[in-house]
Design a binder for these strands. Structure first.
Lengths: 270, 270
DNA sequence: CTTCGCCCTGTAGTCAAACTACAGTTCCCG
DNA sequence: CGGGAACTGTAGTTTGACTACAGGGCGAAG
């Protein structure tokens, strides 16, 4: 994806003919990777060396190299180009953009995440006598999801979205218990209160939140997700899929330390 | 990734020289995409036409086409290879595999999904006077998520996971109302009952489920997700991220038809 | 308004990479 | 042991990618 972004950037201070090339690539990248240099140059209405010069400007060795990088970018970043949903997009386009954005965030998170913290969090949760998941709003849904996943592992686990309830529950925890606190801001006062209570009671606190937030500071282990400059446009809670995936990884990591696990098929399908 | 999988498959009933090619590719795919045909053939210790024949056997047009597909597969499939989580994986590896699996499912779904159905579903929901989201278990969480997302659009929306509650609620619906039913099996009897009630009451039914299921048959519009031969290993509910992404796309599609929408920032952060 | 100079674009030619047709070898089966 | 078929390599052809160079447009300065 970096390549298309760079192209978009450079497009403006590029001159006429080279812009024709840029537009054609941005317009239909998929087509470009299939064509030969000659075919593409003809379609753009420019000569072959012009196209090559354009590739060089982007840091590529030549046309084949450019095609290769483009292909890689498209495969990883998706086909429809880049995020921003606009009025007038039909449902198919919206879907493509939403999926692309989700995939992009997953990829970025995968690279940015701190493996050591994750490892420690997994160990803590695997050793916990009891797990409580706290979260509000969108993160409340993630907490519920975490609850369902840990259920299967035979760990006593609950999820609370009610500030009063988790405040009370947190105060009753004991050393050896663990709280999984989820917050996209890391600043919700109610959540911070319960987190503090849990720590005071001797419980461990695993937080899924952003780096540098008060919640992260409070946690025994903080799993920090990059504060994704949330994809532009009306994309509320896009990061929920990232949180869910992290919870998934945690649950599976815990499962591996607690084998044999409870079989997945319960006869109850949803 | 499909390409490397096919290579692995075919490797066994391939003959000597062609296997040398296959081994070299599987051993270091990244190297292959950089080299020219001649260089690669020399490194493999075979002649150029042999390599080409190998590419043809995999369904590619020739060496450049093979390189291209390989590059795309590597970029999309990620670095860590392919899914299956195993005992002994540390947290970082588990995370990578889980994320890869999620990304793969998103990519497959994006391509497989029926844009027309999605478009129709978006129109129905945008026109609905009232939306009710039904789902049990894992899908109950998706229903909750849908509720939160539609909230912001100013549509009256509720989510029920209790079979008795949604059975009653469905019976009270009127033409112009819409139900969003989510089920990964499409066979939950309670959900089917309420779906039927809703239809009988004149409401529209949008279903997110698998193709060919009873729920899909019942729906006004069925958004069918490929019955992903759910990634092997203990990966419960991996498809939840896919469902969430679909709900996201629906909500955004509806938002585009209902502009101006309620601002995202409410001062309430989670 | 004209003229000089630079940057940009296209043309033609070269080189290498990819592919095809064919012939030799090897291995299996009769 | 001999014949045939499949597989592998060699040589030749074609096409695609790239380079060197020449022509033209645009701005700046006189």
């Amino acid at each position: 994806m970096l390549l298309l972004e760079r192209l978009e950037d450079l497009k403006h201070h590029l001159s006429r003919c080279e812009r024709k090339v840029a537009d054609l690539v941005l317009g239909d990248p998929q087509a470009a990777i299939r064509e030969s240099l000659a075919a593409f140059a003809a379609r753009a209405g420019v000569s072959e060396p012009t196209v090559i010069r354009c590739c060089r400007a982007l840091g590529c060795i030549g046309w084949p190299d450019f095609k290769l990088r483009l292909a890689q970018g498209l495969a990883s970043g998706g086909g429809s180009g880049h995020s921003a949903v606009q009025a007038g997009d039909d449902a198919g386009v919206v879907l493509a953009k939403v999926f692309d954005a989700a995939i992009l965030m997953l990829q970025r998170t995968r690279q940015a995440i701190d493996a050591a913290a994750l490892e420690q969090a997994t160990r803590l949760l695997a050793a916990a006598r009891r797990i409580e998941c706290y979260g509000h709003g969108a993160s409340g849904i993630v907490a519920l999801d975490a609850q369902q996943k840990f259920y299967r592992l035979g760990v006593p686990v609950v999820a609370y979205s009610d500030a009063h309830v988790h405040a009370m529950s947190a105060a009753l925890l004991k050393p050896g218990d663990a709280v999984l606190a989820i917050s996209q801001s890391g600043r919700s006062p109610e959540l911070l209160g319960s987190a503090q209570r849990a720590r005071a009671a001797g419980a461990d606190l695993v937080a899924i939140t952003v780096a540098g937030s008060p919640l992260a500071a409070l946690a025994t282990v903080a799993i920090t997700v990059p504060a994704v400059a949330a994809a532009p446009g009306p994309l509320p809670g896009g990061s929920r899929v990232v949180d869910l995936a992290i919870v998934d990884a945690l649950a599976i990591g815990v499962a591996l330390r607690r084998t044999p696990l409870i079989p997945e098929s319960t006869g109850l399908e949803t």
